[in-house]
């Protein structure tokens, strides 16, 4: 068990039917850092991310082999409670998915599910995490409005606040800026950089420049294989594998 690695992926393979989407991936995610998973389209980035909070389970016909250790505990062990695993991670998806309810209720949804009833505490949490997501000032006076009225960029930050409100240790992002305009993207990136002080962040991206801007650690996937991983500076400056080099120079994409 690695002391400063909240997530340890061991020999993970994922099959969709008979399509092998991840091949024997092993990876330690460093704590309180931003890890970027990069790679061309269809290489298995989303699959890897979803395997971390067992969202893959929701699909029929998916098989997972190998282990994912979360704080040393195998999340695929038969007795593991999946809801407990999932609340340890906040998820940002490709397009923001606001729940069909008010801004306030979106953030309060998670805490309520987990049994928080006190009005006062809920108010506190909603405010705290909306602030942390950098959205509070924009929505303070309209918490009761439907969340769908927000702009897409605001929605994504709302999703961030919603994920933070269940007080996870880890933040997962699947190309969280790909639906956003440059301004909003920048805003989200800035949030992630701030959040890595307290959270372990894993972000899938296919924008190399974004990975350069925010990542401390890089994992490069190619055709379901983890080709290379290491500190961002090293991987970008001196990729070891020719495939990584080809990807970084834009020869494969």
């Amino acid at each position: 068990m690695n002391g400063d690695s909240p997530i340890s992926i061991r020999n993970l393979s994922v099959l969709y039917g008979d399509h092998l989407a991840l091949k024997d991936v092993s990876l330690d995610i460093p704590a309180k850092r931003i890890t970027s998973i990069i790679g061309p389209s269809g290489c298995g980035k989303t699959t890897l991310l979803k395997s971390l909070n067992r969202l893959l389970d929701t699909d029929d016909g998916v098989r997972v082999r190998g282990q994912v250790l979360l704080d040393g505990e195998d999340i695929y062990a038969p007795r593991t409670e999946v809801t407990r695993i999932r609340r340890k991670m906040g998820l940002l998806s490709q397009r923001p998915q606001v729940l069909p309810m008010s801004i306030y209720d979106n953030v309060a949804y998670g805490p309520r599910i987990h049994g928080l009833r006190s009005r006062k505490e809920l108010n506190e949490r909603v405010e705290r995490y909306l602030r942390l997501a950098g959205l509070w000032d924009e929505v303070e006076g309209r918490l009761r409005e439907p969340a769908s009225l927000l702009s897409v960029g605001q929605q994504q930050r709302l999703c961030l606040a919603r994920g933070l409100a269940v007080e996870p240790e880890i933040i997962l992002g699947d190309e969280p800026t790909s639906a956003l305009d440059p301004q909003s993207s920048q805003n989200v990136e800035r949030r992630l950089l701030e959040l890595k002080r307290d959270y372990t962040v894993i972000v899938v991206t296919h924008i190399l420049r974004q990975a350069r801007r925010i990542a401390d650690h890089i994992a490069f996937l190619y055709l379901g294989e983890l080709v290379e991983q290491g500190p961002a500076a090293e991987v970008f400056a001196a990729p070891k594998d020719p495939r990584t080099r080809a990807y970084l120079t834009g020869e494969i994409s």
Binding site: R84, L91, Q97, L99
Partner: peptide, 18 residues
């Protein structure tokens, strides 16, 4: 109803019924 919306709820630790 988009699948990603269900996943958003599930990822917060909600059960399927919730």
């Amino acid at each position: 109803v988009p699948r990603a919306l269900r996943e958003a709820s599930l990822s917060l630790g909600a059960t399927k019924w919730e």
